[in-house]
Design a protein around this nucleic acid. Structure first.
Lengths: 222, 222
DNA sequence: CTGTCGGTGGGACTGAGTACCGTGTCAAGT
DNA sequence: ACTTGACACGGTACTCAGTCCCACCGACAG
């Protein structure tokens, strides 16, 4: 016998799929789960929350992963933290896609989903702020990067949710997308392939920069 | 005598400020505006909507500005479209800051605000998608850029809403922030003022790259 | 047998949002 | 002057989400 909470989740997904979200009352859900209406609101704060049952747990998992980072492993931590979420959705399988259909068609659920997205961005932002903070420019960059990570993750996730790509392809695209994001935000100069391109700027003639150039080229990596 | 709609807006802001959002009923707002409750719901879809009275108009203004763009003026269009929103908030003055305090303290209003943010991102995204679309990588970049523009705008706007900077400073920071965003997403090597120097790293000695450098520097713009 | 504690159910209540109907007003059109 | 119709508004009644409070029940300890 599954737990009361799980029975409520199953009942909710089933009924929302059958009749639609607005056409289903909390009473209906509670009735199908064979519990009282009060019990529903003890398990979930609202009718919408039952669609995102483990959002809080995910948020905690992301925070936990980020907390293990050091200054040298910020990028890895960010990537893996985002991957925790992706992996969870992929593991959910059908249910995640069912939720996606619901969030597309019901405005209330859509805004709920967006609100949870913002929470992820918040977590990434405060994390990055801790490592890169300081100047106003750094703050902006931290926020942009946090945002970009979540956006890239969602971009890939959505493609899987729409069933345009398989789970395996999603994993691969996630990796390349995160690389793309980190490359875009890497400063000061992105490096593509075997050749690194560095951009300096000055008003002096090219020849006078040669010593500086020599130093840059001699350094193995940025 | 201001219009019924305007009286409702004034009444709502006043009461939400005095008693708080949750402690104020729609009846209260309607009563202070000296209209019936029904009239409130005819003017606004929900109790939250009265806080964002001209959001729809803003969305339209942004779309309109973007629609005038050509392939050559995409960046300018994006910048100016975002600026339309900033300018509107700055013109609102006190009321915008009042709204900000409300959205910080009331979760329901916060998620409503976030939902409207997403609509802006959507507009920018479909716009950019139209100009840059094609490959999966281009799609991702378009979404990232749309996101970054909205994020940068909001970053600056928030600083003004918190009254950490003045309206004039907000304008200046907006310009530099948008430059920063466009620079981050510019590919592959941005050139700003003065002389641009591109350094290629390879296995060959620096001197052998001089002809290539000279050619790059000679070219006026990327 | 008694206390109590966690999970549960029920019933009453508030308030948002909707549907429907009635009314006053203003501006033609005749 | 009378009708007609569009329009904005007010009132009533209803559904349903969410809250509050109280009662119940089984487990478990003393």
């Amino acid at each position: 016998m599954p737990s009361t909470r799980d029975r409520l989740i199953d009942a909710a997904f089933a009924l929302f799929e059958e009749r639609g979200f607005d056409e289903t009352t909390v009473d209906d859900v509670a009735a199908r789960a064979e519990v009282g209406r009060t019990t529903f609101f003890r398990a979930f704060r609202s009718k919408e929350d039952v669609i995102f049952p483990d959002h809080d747990a995910m948020l905690g998992a992301v925070s936990a992963r980020l907390a293990t980072a050091t200054a040298a492993t910020v990028e890895v931590a960010v990537t893996e933290a985002a991957h925790v979420v992706l992996a969870h959705y992929l593991a959910e399988g059908t249910r995640a896609q069912q939720r996606y259909r619901l969030t597309r068609s019901v405005p209330a659920l859509r805004s709920r989903e967006v609100a949870s997205l913002l929470q992820y961005q918040q977590v990434f932002r405060t994390f990055l702020h801790g490592w890169t903070g300081g100047t106003a420019r750094a703050d902006l960059r931290a926020e942009l990067l946090a945002n970009a990570v979540v956006t890239a993750h969602n971009h890939v996730l959505r493609r899987w949710l729409r069933e345009t790509i398989t789970a395996g392809e999603a994993e691969a695209e996630f990796a390349t997308s995160m690389d793309e994001v980190l490359r875009i935000f890497a400063d000061p100069a992105p490096s593509v392939g075997g050749t690194a391109v560095v951009v300096l700027r000055s008003d002096q003639p090219v020849e006078s920069l040669l010593p500086a150039l020599r130093e840059v080229v001699a350094r193995p990596e940025t």
